[in-house]
Nucleic acid binder design. Structure first.
Lengths: 263, 263
DNA sequence: ACAATAGTGTCTGTAAGACATTATGTA
DNA sequence: TACATAATGTCTTACAGACACTATTGT
C-alpha cells in the first residue's frame, strides 16, 4: 500500500488516544573514539542523536525520532522514560527533560496529532546494549549535523534543531555536561565536551584549567577529587602526564546579562 | 449539586477532546501605583498574576488559572493567545511562551486531563479594558506572593510556582523585562522591574546606571534614545532631575557559568 | 630526546562593587 | 533652600585572555 492509499483509508479517530499523548524523544549522546596515535591523547568526541527508521506510513522508511503514546496510568515523564528504555534498553539513571509540546494544523497528514517532545542526555556507557533492545525497529545514532542535513519524517528536523539549541544553552548555564562525562573527569575532558556541543565557546585551555578552580566566583562549581591521604586523585587516561580529577558539586550558580557576576 | 455527586455523574470520555488539548495560562503583569509623596518618585510596582474564579465543579468557587481547550484548526500557541484574549481583551502585542505540559495520574479528579501551560507577560497598559472582556467569569489580579499562599484549584499552585521560577530566570538572561516597561525607559525603571521580579538581584543603583552603558560587554544590550539633534532623550516622570531614556537593542548576549563574559 | 598534554607565571585591560561627590529641578 | 533622584569620580579587588614557560611521562 502506498502513502496515498494509506491516507485515504486512515481513520483518524481510531488512532486518537483520548487518554494519552504522543511523546517523542530527542536522545543525545556523545560518543568517544580512540585516536590512532603513538601517545595517549583525548579521544575524538561527537554529539549524536538517536533516530529510528519508520516501518509504516506516513513517512515510511524515513528516519524519525523515537516515540510512542503515553498511557493514562503514567506521567508524561514516565512515558518518555519508558519509550526511551524500549528503544535503548538503558536504565533509570538518565537525564530526561521536557522540551515542548507541538501542535499546529497540518503537522501530521493524518490530522490532529500533537506531540510532547522530551530530550534525553545519555552517557555512551549506557548505550552498549542498545542493539539488544528491539531489533524489529532499526535504530541508529547520527551526528547532529548529519541528522539535521537529512530529510526526516514529520517536523522532526525543526524539533531536533530546537532541542539542540536548548541543549547548547543549558550546556553553558547548568551542569548537564556531567551527563556526558565520567563521574570523575579532567578539566580538559570537560572543556572538550563543552566545545563539542557548543563550538562557539572558545577559551584557551591552559587558562580554563586554572580559572575553573582558582577564581572566586567559580569556586564551588567543581570539586577536586581527593584520595584518603589528601592528595589529588589523578588520571593519565588522556595523556602521559597525569591530570587532576574533578566532580561537579551541588552548587549551581546563576547567571545574568545585567552583571556577569555569578550569584 | 456537590462535588461528590458531580464526580459520580461525570462521564470523562464526554469531556475528552480527541482533537484539542486543555491549555492554561499564567498571565503575569507588573502594576505600578503612584506614591503619595511631595516630590516625584518611582511608583510602587508589584508582580501580579491573573486568576479566575471557577464557576463549576470540580474546585467550584476556587481560584484557578484561566484556560480552555485548543481547537484542531489552531496551533497550541494560537489557542493560548485566544484564551488569554477572551479573558483580558488584550491585543496581539503580547509575549506568550510555552512553559510545559503536565499530566500525571490523579492530577484531575475527573480522570485523564493533561494541560499545556503557557505563560504570558503583559504590560499593564493593555489591561485597562479587562473588565469589559467577559463579566460572566470573575477574573482578578493577585500578587504572585498572594496567589502562591492561596489554596488553588488542581495543581495550579505548583504550576504557578514553576512559571514564576522560569520568569525569574528569563528576567536576568533575556530582555523580557521590556514587556513590563514603556517602550523607552530609564535605567532606574529597568532596575526596579528586575528587582520586583527577582529580589535576590542586588546591585547598587548608581553603579548599575553607569555600568549598563559603559561596560564593553554590555554595550549593545541597551541603546540610548536620541533626539533629532543628537541630544539624549530624557524623562522626568520619576524624578525632578531628568533621566536618560533607553531601549533594548536587538543584540542578545549569552551567558555561561564557565566564564562570565558575555558572548 | 621528543611529543603531547598538564599546569604555572606574569602581564594587560577591563569589570564589579564600595563609597563619595556633583548635578538638576521642583516644592 | 531642602530634598530626592540622576549621574560621575575614584579606588580596590578580581577576572579574562594572551603568551611564555615549566612539569611529567611513555615511546
Amino acid at each position: 500500500m502506498n502513502e496515498k492509499d494509506f491516507l485515504a483509508s486512515y481513520n483518524a479517530s481510531a488512532y486518537n488516544t483520548p487518554k494519552g499523548l504522543p511523546v517523542d524523544i530527542c536522545m543525545f549522546t556523545i560518543t568517544s573514539t580512540k585516536k590512532q596515535t603513538v601517545r595517549k591523547v583525548l579521544p575524538t568526541r561527537d554529539i549524536k542523536i538517536l533516530l529510528i527508521k519508520r516501518k509504516g506510513h506516513p513517512y515510511k522508511d524515513m528516519w524519525a525520532l523515537p516515540g510512542g503514546f503515553s498511557k493514562e496510568e503514567e506521567s508524561l515523564y514516565e512515558a518518555a522514560k519508558r519509550e526511551l528504555k524500549e528503544e535503548t534498553n538503558i536504565g533509570d539513571d538518565v537525564h530526561i527533560e521536557q522540551l515542548k509540546t507541538v501542535y499546529y494544523p497540518g503537522r501530521d497528514k493524518r490530522g490532529w496529532m500533537p506531540t510532547v517532545v522530551y530530550f534525553a542526555l545519555v552517557n555512551e556507557k549506557y548505550l552498549q546494549n542498545m542493539q539488544a533492545a528491539d531489533d524489529a525497529t532499526e535504530a541508529k545514532l547520527f551526528t547532529v549535523e548529519e541528522a539535521l542535513s537529512m530529510s526526516l519524517a514529520f517536523d522532526h528536523h525543526d524539533i531536533i534543531q530546537e532541542a539542540y539549541d536548548k541543549i547548547k544553552e543549558k550546556m553553558l548555564t547548568t551542569s548537564i555536561a556531567k551527563e556526558f562525562l565520567e563521574d570523575e573527569f579532567t578539566i580538559a575532558e570537560l572543556l572538550q565536551v563543552l566545545q563539542v556541543v557548543v563550538p562557539e565557546f572558545k577559551v584557551e585551555k591552559s587558562n580554563f584549567i586554572r580559572k575553573m578552580v582558582s577564581t572566586e566566583t567559580r569556586k564551588g562549581l567543581l570539586e577536586e577529587v581527593r584520595l584518603e591521604n589528601g592528595d589529588h586523585k589523578m588520571s593519565d587516561r588522556n595523556s602521559q602526564r597525569e591530570a587532576r580529577l574533578y566532580q561537579f558539586s551541588d552548587h549551581m550558580p546563576k547567571v545574568s546579562i545585567y552583571n556577569s557576576t555569578l550569584f
